[in-house]
Amino acid sequence: MNTQFRKGAIEMCILALIDHRDRYGYELVQAIAVYMEINEGTVYPILRRLTQEGYVSTYLMESPHGPARKYYQATPSGKKHLESLKAEWSALAHVVGSILGGDENDQK
């Protein structure tokens, strides 16, 4: 699949996953890797950028098993960004779906 396309989709998935609840890196990567085959090391760079853009905030929390973990949390602007990404995505999915399904062909 087109890498640019994938990257955008992964970005959206990351936001959606931490929108439900705060997650730490390994957990987040694991959650995505269940559904998609990705280069797991590239999730962190995306998280860093989302943090710099103000869509995601982080905090450290002690874990019962070892050293502190960094948790990622969606900010209000991140939630807003996610909503617009979702809207764009479903609009595109709808159009592509109709074209692939051939619904539009009859009308022209």
């Binding site: 390994y26 990567v29 098993h65 960094k70």
Partner: peptide
Amino acid sequence: EFFDDGALQQEEEWQTAQRLGD
């Protein structure tokens, strides 16, 4: 942290490295 969490899941270091990629 990722490596440490991998170890908690009984992952070998080389396996975690492979997951992360080059």
